[in-house]
Design a protein around this nucleic acid. Structure first.
Lengths: 342, 342
DNA sequence: TGTTAGCACTCGAATGCGATGAGTGCTAAC
DNA sequence: GTTAGCACTCATCGCATTCGAGTGCTAACA
């Protein structure tokens, strides 16, 4: 016995129904609500087969059937193969982004909000992660007589600043001169190259030791932050809208995972650079998310930089809709950031 | 009939017990667990009086009594009056803060984590809010040929940056010259003064219109952000550990309030500059937090700046402990930031 | 050979009911 | 003023019962 077209149609109907209602679906429901020209008895036989094939589970004998992770996998693969993704009103989504949000951080936070309100699931937005960042400019801004703010601008448009101590003999003009010199030296180099350059130059400037280590520290920080990206969440409490999380214990575990962002970052990083990634239940590799699915998409920012947006919800997720929204939001985000860079 | 010393002692015992167990406390419990030399019958009479006075509620006739908001208020006022606040191991807390966290944002996020893990409630940390900020330095950093990053440093040490467009005729040196000029003009002035100065100067520089509005926009943004402060949360899912929030519907409302931070900010702002503020249940003014309490404390950063830290939990909160932790963390935070400024 | 009607069977969820016991309020005695 | 005693209340628990959605199987049908 193998999977045939009819079995597949019935399975789809079951999944569609279960996604909508979250209650185990019986043979009669399928034969009535979905116009298969088949009686409940026939459906029953097919369902029995589908269960044997591992696509359906039965919570208990007198309940209907529930799709298994394997079933969702098949379902999603088919969606992706056919490109059957809900077309989203891109213009409508653009409206949500109308505000000028300047700081990268605001942008990703905002995107997470939009994404969660459009999908009603929990949204994740990770800031772009560059594979190769080059320094464009480095500048000191006087803060007090003995400290200055170092600002680094990179070609991915990411800026980062930090206060360091400088000698008390450095006035604004001296700082500017150093800024120019360092920019000239470092511009166009990657972060790790820049670190080496400073380290080798340090030999000649014992007096400026503290200042130089401040700069290398900052560069490391930029590298580090960039390596793992910043993560913004939206709609964390949305999960409580779903009956599968009406159990407080489960909800707590879920929320705890969201709070300790490490695992999420790990999860988001291990995806290939595919347009869409769908991880269903056990595929997430996190026991606490065993009955959740994670759908992610990438957006681009220039050639070397890409960020990730995603949605976490129950396995019976409205995949088609979510994929559509992710696609549209990702596109908007790419556009927005492109404009922003200019 | 009025409140006398014995009634008060009994009320305290009831509150203590209820804070610990979360189950309505009966007369027998009090007469046995707490060494009042009184029988349950006497306690019963007193409890009846306390109920009449509005300090106790009775969920139903055959259950014990539960303290009312009014009772907690009395209890907390007494704690504060007597200074009966759990001494906290300040050294231990300092250990949590050992990492050098440079950006203000990291600091407040970190503080929220520490606070929530020490109290097991949900923690709020608001960044310092200055009543009067003066500009210390304003500088442009070239980003591309037509855009630059404006960095504003204020006397409260807060920096904010934003990208603005500049004419293509502005090279690094020209930008530096303008930076110097503007810094000279604006340094020492408050943000609103600075806005006016720029506006009046704009008349002579029609060509630089775009650039100048960019700057005033940024100043407004700093003002705005500063007026309401940044808010970090910690331990949002902690609330689910308490039986009063085992009802998913209530938990959802609570978490939704946390997510839409506006109401929280409002709440945190309306406190006087007192060492501690305790708002119990209805006193929060937010229906969704009707059975929560909010305890806040302030920390200082220089003379004009103060930030707020706080904890939200069920009304039966371990007030004494929370007040102790808030005091200690606030102190640590003040120290940390003082060092940071130097 | 595939489909369907019919029917017995299963088992979770809902309902009803009495027992239990924690806790109260009241009264009367100390 | 305090306390022992007692009747009373009412949420909770355990248990039996009913209800019904859904199944699997068999036999008849196209």
């Amino acid at each position: 016995m193998a999977m045939d077209a009819r079995k597949f149609r019935i399975l789809q109907a079951i999944i569609d129904d279960y996604i909508l209602t979250a209650i185990p679906v019986g043979s009669r429901t399928i034969s009535k609500k979905y116009e298969t020209g088949l009686s409940s008895a026939t459906i029953r036989n097919e369902m029995s087969d589908l269960e044997e094939l591992g696509y359906l589970d039965q919570p208990h004998v007198s309940a209907g059937r529930v799709p298994s992770a394997k079933a969702y996998r098949l379902y999603v693969d088919e969606l992706l193969r056919q490109g059957k993704i809900d077309a989203e009103d891109v213009e409508g989504i653009r409206g949500h982004f109308s505000d000028r949000a300047r700081q990268m951080e605001d942008v990703i936070g905002h995107a997470a909000q939009v994404l969660s309100s459009l999908t009603h699931y929990t949204a994740l937005v990770m800031s772009p992660k560059a594979t190769e960042i080059r320094i464009r400019n480095l500048q000191f801004v006087p803060v007090s007589s003995t400290s200055a703010l170092v600002v680094i601008v990179t070609d991915s448009g990411i800026m980062r600043d930090s206060v360091i101590r400088v000698g008390s003999d450095m006035d604004a003009d001296a700082l500017y001169a150093i800024s120019r010199m360092l920019t000239e030296q470092l511009s166009g180099h990657t972060l790790s190259q820049a670190r080496k350059i400073i380290a080798s130059a340090a030999a000649g400037f014992e007096r400026r030791q503290q200042m130089l280590t401040g700069i290398t520290d900052l560069i490391s920080e930029v590298e580090q932050q960039n390596a793992q990206g910043k993560l913004a969440l939206g709609g964390t409490s949305n999960i409580l809208n779903f009956p599968e999380y009406s159990d407080v214990e489960k909800a707590k575990n879920f929320l705890a995972i969201l709070e300790g962002k490490e695992k999420l970052l790990q999860l988001l990083q291990q995806h290939e650079q595919m347009a869409f990634t769908v991880r269903i239940g056990p595929e997430t590799g996190i026991p606490e998310l065993a009955d959740c699915s994670l759908v992610t998409a990438t957006y681009r920012l220039g050639d070397h930089n890409h960020g990730t947006i995603g949605v976490i919800g129950p396995t019976r997720m409205q995949y088609s809709h979510v994929l559509g929204v992710l696609g549209a939001v990702g596109e908007q985000l790419s556009n927005l950031l492109r404009q922003d860079k200019e």
